[in-house]
Amino acid sequence: MQLQFTVNERPCHVDDVWEGESLLFVLRERVGLWGSKNACEQGECGSCTVLLDGAAVCSCLVAAGQVDGRHVVTVEGLGDRSDLHPVQQAFVDAGAVQCGFCTPGLVVATADLLRRNPSPSDAEIREALAGNLCRCTGYAQILDAVRLAAAVAR
């Protein structure tokens, strides 16, 4: 099947999509956006988090055809090396990155959290990011990064 949708505000057309594919697979293998990561394919880890029409979702659980005509924002759409998003900068500055596999999903989830709630409490951060597993950091420096990003935004 064919798909037309926007990714990071750019129109995107892909052909030969298998109907059983996930949005994650489309982004990674057909659009060439490798930033969204595949770690569980069942919505348990959050590594593939993207914004779909403005809502944070696990892209592994969105069928390819469901995004036709819709708007997707991936970690690449938040900022790049020359122009880091404040959340990305905070993750670097707070030492919240180790292996980095969870980082893109956490960056998107954090950006979504801070858009909804610019001054979250620690408890709110923990609950909002509960669906993003990290195996390296024990989350402490991730929590620091979220607090830092929130403070910078204020």
């Binding site: 970690v75 690449e76 670097v92 030492g95």
Partner: peptide
């Protein structure tokens, strides 16, 4: 010192190449 990771910004922007990103 708390030197920053050389791969930190690449990882935070999704541009770091993991083994699953090879093409």
């Amino acid at each position: 010192t708390d030197a920053s990771r050389p791969d930190g910004t690449l990882k935070a922007t999704g541009q770091f190449g993991f083994s699953s990103d090879l093409w």
